[in-house]
Design a protein around this nucleic acid. Structure first.
Length: 316
DNA sequence: GCCCAGGCACCGA
DNA sequence: TCGGTGCATGGG
């Protein structure tokens, strides 16, 4: 896990000595963050408590750490505590850096809003969901697996598949009567054969894709910081789509949620089409020509536009 | 039964 | 390059 320069400036030890405090850049909406994190009851990679704390099991320096995130709205701060797995300052700092990355706190939302506020489709969305950031998937292997799992099936079924996958091959820690999971390590999946995944109800292709990507990741060839992924957007798309099972939608999905390219745009996404249809009051899903005209002004901000469109799907 | 879900690989022209 | 087809499963 790498510390980002901006995040380091914003993290300090809590005054009472329990955990660290993260000053969040504005705008940031904790409510919107929770709304996204709570969207599936089948989610097993984090838990949101009734009083609005977020619990998540991380792997920090090769050991599990159960992290708790809570919000201090009046101060514009998040507090990060360790519930189990060690409270050394270095481990807490890494957990805080993870949150910074996870919640997309590096993004300059105001710059996006300057573009979006006058847009007929995005304008109302950014007004309604002020402070919504792109909640990410910091781990590239997890992001690619999740994109493979989500291909061509309903989101609810995708969550069921992910739950089985995580609970079969991930690592668990029990805390106060609840079980918390980490996403499976590439090594655990790399040694499987695709047939091992079929009983979990993965299709033949999804099974093969997952094992293939795990073997690639296990070989070290899927480093987030690799030249192929940091030499510009087109090069990164080319690198990811060279993987079996990663097409344009999945590559853009991972570049949006993991590598955080603002121009990443999974335009084939059924959810985007559905959102546009609803927002424009269309009978049928928009044609490609309609979409092109619509998103031309979003150039350079497509990832943010996508996340706000997805958000609109759970509006009344 | 039919269509659609946060698509993709593969095939033939 | 482009369009058609099979794939697995669940819900409306």
């Amino acid at each position: 896990m790498n510390m980002h320069a901006d995040s380091q400036q914003s993290i300090r030890a809590a005054a009472d000595g329990d955990g660290v405090v993260l000053t969040v850049p504005q705008p940031f909406s904790y409510i919107e963050t929770l709304h996204y994190l709570k969207r599936s009851n089948e989610e097993v990679l984090h838990r949101v408590t009734e009083d609005g704390r977020i619990l998540k099991l991380l792997r920090v320096r090769d050991r599990p750490l159960l992290m708790e995130v809570s919000n201090d709205e009046s101060r514009g701060e998040l507090r990060i505590r360790s519930l189990s797995g060690g409270r050394e300052p270095e481990r807490l700092l890494e957990a805080a850096a993870y949150v910074w990355e996870w919640f997309g706190l590096d993004a300059d939302l105001n710059a996006f809003y300057r573009m979006a506020s006058g847009d007929p489709v995005l304008g109302p969305l950014v007004a309604r969901h002020d402070g919504l950031r792109i909640i990410g998937v910091p781990d590239l292997f997890e992001a690619l697996c999740w994109s493979i799992i989500g291909q061509q099936i309903t989101l609810s079924f995708a969550y069921q598949l992910k739950k089985r996958f995580v609970q079969t091959y991930g690592e668990a820690v029990d805390y106060e009567g609840e079980r918390y999971w980490t996403f499976p390590d590439p090594a655990a999946i790399a040694r499987l054969t695709p047939d091992d995944l079929r009983p979990l109800q993965f299709s033949r292709s999804k099974s093969a894709f997952l094992v293939g990507v795990a073997r690639e990741a296990e070989s070290g060839a899927l480093d987030r910081t690799s030249t192929a992924l940091r030499s510009g957007f087109d090069a990164a798309v080319a690198r990811l789509t060279s993987l079996h099972g990663i097409g344009p939608w999945s590559a853009n999905y991972a570049l949006m949620r993991c590598l955080r390219y603002p121009e990443a745009f999974p335009i084939q996404d059924a959810g985007i089409h559905q959102a546009v249809r609803k927002l424009l009051g269309l009978e049928a899903k928009p044609s490609l020509a309609e979409l092109r005209a619509l998103y031309a002004p979003w150039a350079g901000w497509e990832a943010f536009a996508t996340f706000y469109l997805w958000r609109s799907l759970s509006d009344q």
